[in-house]
Design a binder for these strands. Structure first.
Lengths: 243, 243
DNA sequence: CGGCGCTTTGAAGACTCTCAACGACTGTGG
DNA sequence: CCACAGTCGTTGAGAGTCTTCAAAGCGCCG
């Protein structure tokens, strides 16, 4: 509810990137110890409460972020309230690859989170100074582009069970980067968020979860946890892409 | 029909980038005259017949392309034939921003075209040598990312008339970069391609065209030409994005 | 001029959405 | 510790929209 991420407590203006738990995942991994030091000078680490908004669509794009803990959602809203959740941000992800001067989506925390914030101007300077960083960002942008195209395929042409299977598998793969967790997938987002990410309604998402459960493809030990029972079956459903 | 782009005739192994008609639009614009010369050494300009396939999904990603004339489509196909046209490529556009070792879509010519082809290895070398180029590619990747997110919003949440209005306006904007043409938009792609780009059927696209025509928003002087009669009305339909 | 491919139009049907009520879980206050 | 209220998710019935299937129209090229 608090629009301002700076909540006084739990905000360290100078960070400790070297010991960062997601450094191996984040774009910072492109930097040497010395270069990381330069990054620290312009980085602020913030705690962000669940439900807080980091930025709103249309505002001047003043900062870029790297998530170190928790989860964010990127949301675009049409005039009449129709929503698209462009993406979910997990620890190690970078938010700031855009050609626009203004934010193109709201950035909202869906769990108690922690972000590293850098001004776009400072980031630009770092990019110019350290070509590794620019290279890493390009690489990241290409990956996100691939990812966006996968999402588009799902949005345009898949049926609800296929969409959900695809979503679960891709989330599982992303989480596997952190914990080597096998078949349990955490769902930090609500059913409505999943619906707005897959172009469905919350009701359809709910019905589809039950369908997958009744088919013994997944189990739902908790509202926020999916257990993959039949990975092959899920992958089969998600069609696994190309012809 | 011809899978091999090299058709013998009309293929200049050494190009003339300096006088290229789309140089101001393409990524090459980041290069100095001298640097362009280095690019020329590794570039081949090909004529590509309408209907020809430049690459297939799954093949090793050996080349990147810049389109200098004509039009291409990028196509992903599911096992059962469902298609998504990921995007249309117009002169000046770059095809090759991907994190994958293999092509993620078929690249097909939908008009008699001409491309500049560069090997990925050579391109990588140029990127390392000329940081302008890498910077330009990052900028381009960010723009494409923005674009992909706009497409996702349309795919997920817009209704057919909104999708089509949005599509026409965005195509018009892209074509305006070339000819300063005002209200006439060329449609190099067929109705089926538009359908597979917007997540609809060909029939729905056709019906929606007639609807927009009957609403006096557009005219269709030819199958392949749209004339925008009421730009404001179209933009209104397309909702123009944010809340 | 005739044939072929693409597009348009029409009618029936399937699917998801909408609307509505029920159920489960969480956190709070008595 | 229990009861309760609020939020979020699930389940059900009906309606609307796009799709599917089918046929006719149009333009292009031989």
């Amino acid at each position: 509810m608090n629009g301002n991420p700076a909540n006084g407590k739990d905000c360290s203006p100078v960070s400790d990137c070297i010991h960062c738990s997601v450094r191996h995942l984040a774009v910072c991994s492109a930097l040497s110890a010395e270069e990381v030091h330069a990054l620290e000078q312009v980085t602020t680490s913030y705690a962000v409460d669940n439900g807080a908004t980091l930025a709103r669509a249309g505002e001047d794009r003043l900062h870029v972020y790297t998530l170190t803990a928790g989860a964010l959602r990127l949301v675009r809203t049409l005039a009449d309230g129709r929503r698209l959740v462009t993406g979910f941000v997990l620890p190690g992800d970078y938010v700031g690859l855009s050609g626009s001067d203004t934010y193109r989506y709201d950035i909202e925390a869906i769990a108690d989170s922690r972000v590293c914030r850098v001004g776009v101007a400072q980031m630009r300077e770092l990019r110019l100074r350290y070509t590794h960083l620019e290279r890493k960002l390009l690489q990241r942008a290409c990956q996100e582009l691939d990812n966006a195209q996968d999402s588009a395929l799902a949005l345009a042409r898949m049926q609800p069970p296929e969409k959900l299977a695809d979503f679960i598998l891709r989330l599982a793969e992303r989480q596997a980067r952190h914990q080597g967790s096998g078949n349990r997938v955490a769902l930090p987002m609500g059913r409505g968020d999943i619906a707005d990410h897959l172009g469905l309604t919350m009701e359809t998402v709910s019905r589809t979860f039950t369908k997958l459960r009744q088919s013994n493809l997944i189990a739902l030990p908790h509202l926020t946890v999916v257990e993959i029972l039949d990975r092959e079956g899920l992958e089969n459903l998600a069609s696994d892409g190309l012809e």
